[in-house]
């Protein structure tokens, strides 16, 4: 699961400090995800872990060179912002990542995480202590936001991924798999994902062909085009190989994750399909009442698809990507 700047998000939400900073947040998500659990079923994991990993604890070196002792079958795992891969390999955390005490959570995982207690994105030391974990794993050291490594590792063995791995959801999933001796689950999930991508790609080829696609996230009165290498952008353009609309194709080599789009750019936008991730109603309203709106090909063809802001479209991960593809499938093919 790719990390989409929880801090940025967090602060923007909490303090509204950041509205102007361009790269921005990502809140949102979720869809009731009915099927991601084919491969994965959290309910059976407790027993699983006992039977499979029932051996002894092992010592591994994390992304920052710390020697970490992984318990033989950790049962009280804190994996903030790694809930997606953790669920995918069939484990369940004891708390879920959140901003502002639940104001923002990874909604797209709501079905699985549901009413798990929140842990603040800054991982306050005492909240961690209160949760009483037996293992902590985080996607990068920035996630250990309220103390230094030693303070966390005194509470429970703490594994920090190197941030490069943390930003690549496949690598993250595999690393989580090997960490918890569930390599097989991780690999199966990836294979299954690739097969699913292949299948949907074929169908899209037949129905959508070379039509151009753009994903735009509307929030706080600003419009952000989702880069082709992140979140739903990566799913649509890298995995499903849809054609990028000009606003995306023209992004610089190493684009920001979210790129603000001017109204002028909308006037030239050549998207035949336009996905609008609805950050808030006002922003949608303001865009759709602009004059340029009706000039967009997708609008003329009535191929504008609104995505709820609690969906998976702003996240990366096995669960997130699957949900995104399902939605693409439903919106672009099934109808």
């Amino acid at each position: 699961m790719k990390k989409i700047y929880p801090y940025t998000l967090a602060l923007a939400t909490t303090a509204m400090l950041l509205t102007a900073c361009g790269d921005q947040e990502d809140t949102d998500n979720n869809t009731a995800n009915g099927e991601a659990d084919e491969t994965v079923e959290e309910s059976d994991d407790a027993d699983d872990s006992d039977s499979e990993a029932g051996g002894t604890e092992k010592t591994v070196t994390d992304g920052y060179g710390n020697e970490v002792t992984v318990p033989s079958s950790p049962e009280r795992i804190i994996a903030p912002y790694l809930e997606d891969p953790l669920l995918t390999i069939g484990l369940e955390p004891i708390v879920q990542w959140s901003v502002n005490n639940g104001a923002s959570v990874q909604d797209y995982l709501a079905d699985e995480l549901g009413d798990l207690p929140y842990i603040d994105y800054q991982l306050p030391l005492e909240s961690v202590m209160e949760a009483d974990p037996d293992f902590i794993v985080v996607p990068d050291e920035g996630t250990l936001g309220s103390g230094d490594y030693n303070q966390y590792s005194q509470m429970a063995p703490t594994y920090v991924m190197d941030s490069e791995t943390g930003e690549d959801w496949r690598a993250t999933l595999l690393e989580m798999g090997s960490l918890f001796d569930r390599d097989e689950e991780a690999e199966t999930a990836l294979e299954e994902y690739d097969a699913y991508v292949e299948e949907v790609k074929q169908e899209l080829n037949d129905t959508v062909g070379d039509d151009k696609v753009a994903v735009v996230w509307l929030i706080n009165g600003a419009y952000f085009v989702v880069a082709p290498n992140i979140a739903s952008g990566a799913v649509l353009f890298e995995d499903l190989e849809l054609e990028t609309a000009n606003a995306i194709a023209e992004l610089p080599e190493d684009p920001d994750h979210w790129n603000e789009l001017s109204l002028e750019a909308f006037a030239n936008l050549d998207a035949d399909y336009l996905f609008l991730v609805n950050g808030d109603e006002d922003s949608v309203e303001s865009l759709t009442t602009e004059d340029v709106w009706s000039t967009i090909p997708a609008v003329e063809k009535d191929q504008v698809i609104e995505i709820a802001d609690d969906s998976s479209w702003l996240y990366n991960g096995y669960q997130a990507n699957r949900q995104t593809i399902e939605e693409v499938h439903e919106q672009m093919i099934s109808e």
Binding site: Y5, Y7, T8, A10, L11, L17, L18, C21, D23, Q122, D140, G142, G145, S146, G147, D148, N150, Q151
Partner: peptide
């Protein structure tokens, strides 16, 4: 700060507004 990665940017912003989180004996 604008030249930093967004994560560092946030951290710097919070740090600059003055905070003593993450204090330890060192």
């Amino acid at each position: 700060q604008l030249r930093m990665s967004p994560n560092d940017f946030m951290q710097a912003t919070v740090w600059l507004s003055g905070n003593i989180w993450g204090a330890n004996w060192s």
